[in-house]
């Protein structure tokens, strides 16, 4: 059995609420190591009577061994996400398996351009890529297009603020914008996905993550814009 298929005991060390519906959960996990940006873990929760539930969560940061960072957004009625968002406390224990997945991954030695497109909590694995790039000092060109409903739904707005970074971050608001925002609230469209250095002719790798509807729409738009489907990698967030 490889290390990534073993269950490790995990203890919650931090779990701040970051929006009305989401928390950033940090776990201390002895034995966990070697994750790549874009990979996920399985979390296993066990009730007092032995009942267990397992869900997959994307890592939001990589590079620190024995530590697991995930972002949990509450799914209405979701058995695991409602517990993690509403009830979890520092010191609580669960189990972790991983890192898992090898396709929706950004490797630090890849110097090519990368276009990231996130819908809502689909930001999670793309955030790991942005953080990994910054941590190792990579100069690979990155652009993030991040679609959210309202300004209150932006995860980690200070970190994503482009001022201190060479990554262009384009926020797309679909319901409500901040005051004097130049782009009216509207669903993400082709114009939002076009930018010098990240167009089809530039051949970026495109990572798209969000709900199924979001991913289908965006993958269709970038394909219509001429991106090679083989360079478009998708990950979807299911419910529960």
């Amino acid at each position: 059995m490889s290390a990534s298929s073993q269950w490790h005991v995990a203890t919650v060390v931090d779990a701040p609420r970051i929006t009305r519906t989401a928390r950033a959960v940090t776990l201390s996990v002895p034995g966990f190591s070697g994750a790549l940006a874009g990979q996920h873990v399985d979390l296993r929760l066990t009730a007092a009577d032995g009942y267990q539930a397992v869900r997959s969560y994307s890592l939001t940061a990589v590079g620190a061994d024995e530590r697991v960072d995930v972002l949990v957004d509450r799914v209405p009625g979701g058995e695991v996400s409602t517990y993690l968002v509403d009830d979890l406390r520092v010191g609580d224990q669960m189990e972790v398996r991983g890192p898992l997945g090898g396709y929706f991954v950004w490797r630090p030695d890849d110097a090519g351009a990368v276009l990231l497109v996130a819908g809502g909590s689909g930001l999670a694995p793309l955030l790991a890529m942005l953080r990994a790039r910054r941590k190792i000092g990579s100069t690979a060109p990155f652009r993030l297009v991040y679609s959210v409903r309202t300004p209150d739904d932006v995860f980690f707005p200070d970190e994503l603020d482009g001022g201190a970074s060479d990554v262009e971050v384009a926020l797309v608001f679909t319901r409500t914008t901040p005051a004097r925002w130049p782009r009216p609230a509207a669903r993400l469209g082709k114009d939002d996905l076009v930018a010098p250095g990240f167009d089809a002719a530039d051949g970026p790798t495109v990572f798209v993550c969000g709900s199924t509807g979001f991913v289908e729409t965006v993958a269709g738009l970038v394909t219509e814009l001429g991106h090679d489907p083989a360079r478009v990698r998708t990950e979807r967030f299911g419910g529960a």
């Binding site: 269950w7 005991v9 929760l45 066990t46 009730a47 007092a48 009577d49 009942y51 539930a53 517990y83 009830d87 979890l88 406390r89 609580d92 224990q93 669960m94 189990e95």
Partner: peptide
Amino acid sequence: MGIVTRGFG
């Protein structure tokens, strides 16, 4: 393993 996740279930 014996791990119980407090409050879950």
